[in-house]
Design a protein around this nucleic acid. Sequence first.
DNA 1: CAGCCTTCCTAGAACGTTCTAGTGGTCGGA
DNA 2: TCCGACCACTAGAACGTTCTAGGAAGGCTG
Lengths: 334, 334
Amino acid sequence: MRAGERRPTLADVAAEAGVSVALVSIVMRGAPGAGATTRQQVLEVARRLGYQPDSRARLLRSGESRLLGVVFAVRHPFHDDVLTGLYDAADRAGYELTLSAVTPRRDERTAFAGLLQDRCAALILLGPLAPTADLAALAERLPVVVMFRAVRHRAVDVVRTDDARGLHLAVDHLVALGHRRIAHVDGARWVAAGERRRGYQDAMRRHGLEDLIRVIPGGSGEEDGARAARLLLDDPPTAVTTFNDLSATGLLDGLRRGGLDVPGDISVVGYDDSSFSRLAHIDLTTVAQDIDAMSTLAVTRAIERIAGTPVAHRETVIPPHLVVRGTTGPPPMR
Amino acid sequence: MRAGERRPTLADVAAEAGVSVALVSIVMRGAPGAGATTRQQVLEVARRLGYQPDSRARLLRSGESRLLGVVFAVRHPFHDDVLTGLYDAADRAGYELTLSAVTPRRDERTAFAGLLQDRCAALILLGPLAPTADLAALAERLPVVVMFRAVRHRAVDVVRTDDARGLHLAVDHLVALGHRRIAHVDGARWVAAGERRRGYQDAMRRHGLEDLIRVIPGGSGEEDGARAARLLLDDPPTAVTTFNDLSATGLLDGLRRGGLDVPGDISVVGYDDSSFSRLAHIDLTTVAQDIDAMSTLAVTRAIERIAGTPVAHRETVIPPHLVVRGTTGPPPMR
DNA sequence: CAGCCTTCCTAGAACGTTCTAGTGGTCGGA
DNA sequence: TCCGACCACTAGAACGTTCTAGGAAGGCTG
């Protein structure tokens, strides 16, 4: 690019083609109101000059932004899949996506602010950590759809997985294999940890195993899982459910180092179906969320809000499903 | 958000505060030219009305976009780390980032087009797959910085790792451990595969091991590594270097299933230092790129181009370093 | 041939901001 | 007392687009 070279504008194209600016605008938008030959001619000139519409000016004038802001966290187990789904859904609806990432050195507040200035029509937040009050304040300004997290506030839409049901599935699977002594490695104070823990407890009770309920303190990292493994090795159960996949891999590693065979001696179930859980090397049985359905729903919901369509339910809860891989099997013979 | 509620503008704040629009603009930008008390007063009114500057209008008027477009690929082994680094560097330079993702169902062309319309001042592309001609065409319109890939074109800036050197490091490390029969699992037609293969071959020659050079067909996925493992099991070398970490994990798994102990019988080196390679469970010795340095450099280069500063070198090659973990060790005793 | 549609096109305002070129007032110095 | 410098502030144009209101030409109907 040579310096000082100005990008061509509608006016340049209009002058070159010998028509008015308004007509070029009509042609570029593909709007009705231009003759076939002129249309052809204008398009040709635009192509020759390398004209690119300026979406800023366009949006500024037309008021409608057709722009959805997405806040995602780098390193989030499945944000890649979610972005893929969101792009698809937005595309189908004729909307654009603008992304703002949360990184270890860029907090949510910054990410929100950036998108607000870009005049997005709505915000889709992937598993935000901000307190409910902050999200509510945000929702005062524009429609907000939160994914993968429960938010009890009437101004915020939520699309999330039925986390309790995810643990029901995990426990049911293990019980069906013959397990009874099933422990749960907890997610401490992380988003959704409480619901998963309660799901585990409910499921155990439902199977008449309330006396065998055993919740091990944990967290969201690999080292949390490894620590839990050390706590379990003294008196190992025959199966363990976990808060997430990362902690499950730490657990797996800790159990194996402790001399246990997985799944021969002990079965392990993760949560999230993270991309690494599919690696042949890890091959983790895990609870998967229906990413595509959830993405589509989030976009739809955002657009309904923008349009002001009345929406019956603020919160939509999607059932998860179990992906059975190699870390679960029947309990060892006594 | 109630429908029909217009976002407050400079004019609203000005009217409410009883001053001119221009003055509010001055205050909001923190520009000199306003009295302390008025400034205070205007800020207070702006806060009360919930005023948010409209970056579109701002950029439209001021011409300067201070906006860098970043095209990244979802599922790219280390794009998360790169984004983190880029945000930091852009922030330090007073620039904003706008992201456009390439997903399995959204190609690069689409990603480029989106950013062009946003009037970015420059583009930073993370390992683009587009042919050089396309990148060159893009560079006609605005400064383009390509990361993680060599592009031989005078209009395109490149910031990449010395991939050949990465394999030198890997081979040197293995030779120092005592290995001589070292094979390389190739990356087929992927970006950088050729240079890594040549790096391997050079290093082998440098150690006088040219007769032991052995390149196994591979690819970028886990299954490619697993296939390579099957090819190697008949006559296993004592060490293997690979095109990337994903293929290395497939290889690891295949070798172990074939009855070999890693690193007892055979050592494996990956490439990329992907996040999963750090998992205790995988614990892969691998070649790491200096992400922070590269991100900073890419942003700096982009800004220099925008400013029209003459830049000496189009291409900057950063040396990688080796991260030694648990998949390499001395060769087995004979 | 008047009247009325259509079709194709244009002028000019508007979007929310920044920028340029001021205006008017105060103050210090000669 | 007057001049100039400086400070606080303002009017209005400009950025590149879309939108509203309309105009000119041509064809159809009665």
